[in-house]
Design a protein around this nucleic acid. Structure first.
Lengths: 229, 229
DNA sequence: TTGCATTTCAAACATTTGTATGAAACTATC
DNA sequence: GATAGTTTCATACAAATGTTTGAAATGCAA
């Protein structure tokens, strides 16, 4: 068998299994069984289990980052070199949300894998995620161009909150669905992106935050029971 | 030795080690060494490793939920039976943010443990988190009372985004610090709570989201390299 | 003290898991 | 078709890890 076939089979099987059952529950033996290859093939082609996971995650991350930057570039060219803050935020959260939500997501192993990576966060993935700051700086720069009057602190908080809403929606979509008893439509990706973008832009343009005294809670000491949960 | 002492020593040691090194890196042998008890004590007192983790997480969750509800109750009594939406959001995100951020957090093992639980999400914790919806419903009810004109969908999205900003700030505080090169002050917990509350209230009171056509990205097919990440 | 229940302890168990090995099969080049 | 390089395969290895066991120690009530 051509060497690339085995490699690809392993990658595909691993992504599918990790997406379905999580990193903790899937062993190399599960993967090679699914891929119909020999156990030793993983170490032969990838060096180690962690490098296999890293390769999966890097590939998908690159794709998402590419989409983001393409969308940003398109928005900048559309605006004659300067994109609107709204379009920048849309370029930031759109690709991820489109990839991980939506009615056709069942067919997308890649999307489910990225959701899983977002939830479980194993060491090889954590290491890669740390490099993501460099990518985000490009968005910070674009935002600075779009809002030259705003100070950097506000800008970073806005960027941070935009990612917060996008990622949390992906991570906790099941809970939101259950909490809202289906009232929040998680299949209408366009509306979700609009919502996240709108709130993000509002957060960015809200001016100074008034610092009002925080309410201190009354701490009640007492025996804790499971009911309290 | 009194049986409770061994129990407590195990709980304390486990919480500390999990907080410092994560669930994946800490074995029962590490825990019993730290607690100066016998290996079999864990299974004797807790039944299994997973039940030990569950007990740790349940205890801390109960505490947070108590603080939240106390703060909500105080706000409602302050407002003559009906709390303002702002105070409700503050009661929702305040306890968690105060617990997990701030300059004195180094001393708080409990806080670091909860951060870790938020990042890693092991099976026994995931199972417990699913019950959290019941707790959140109480906040949804309070919000409904505070904003009777608002529809449920908007309400749930606002609640969801508030938690998104709070949890994401806790989870990704290191990255935000690095991205902003220290400009975002993650020790000023009061300001962070104000910021999250302000944005949440804005999100809740913003009316209908205009659904404008989303910008479709130009998908570029090409060879991916690590540089693209 | 005696007797019974609880708790501790050292040791062993039983798996699971990622990795390594060396021979065999295969592929491509000359 | 011989040879060298690559890939596959069955098998073994070594280490880690949660759990169990049965005896010893301890605590406690009568």
């Amino acid at each position: 068998m051509a060497s690339d076939q085995t490699r690809s089979a392993i990658l595909a099987a691993a992504e599918r299994l990790y997406a379905d059952r999580g990193f903790g529950d899937v062993t190399l033996r599960d993967i090679v069984a699914e891929a119909n290859v020999n156990l030793a093939a993983v170490n032969y082609h990838f060096g180690s289990k962690d490098e296999l996971i890293a390769e999966l995650f890097v590939t998908r991350s690159i794709q998402t980052n590419r989409e983001r930057l393409n969308e940003l570039k398109a928005a900048e060219e559309n605006g004659g070199g300067r994109a609107s803050i709204e379009d920048i935020m849309r370029a930031l959260v759109g690709p991820t949300l489109r990839g991980c939500l939506g009615p056709d997501r069942e067919g997308s192993t890649a999307a489910r894998f990225m959701i899983r990576a977002s939830i479980e966060s194993v060491p090889p993935i954590r290491r890669i995620k740390n490099r993501e700051v460099d990518h985000l700086r490009k968005f910070a720069a674009a935002m600075r161009r779009a809002m030259p009057a705003s100070n950097d602190t506000e800008l970073y908080w806005g960027l941070h909150f935009a990612l917060a809403m996008a990622h949390h929606t992906i991570r906790e979509k099941e809970r939101l669905l259950r909490l809202s008893e289906g009232k929040c439509d998680l299949d209408d990706v366009r509306a979700i992106i609009d919502r996240v973008v709108t709130v993000s832009v509002m957060a960015l343009t809200m001016g100074d935050v008034p610092s009002k005294p925080a309410l201190r809670p009354v701490v009640v000491h007492g025996r804790l029971t499971r009911q309290d949960l």
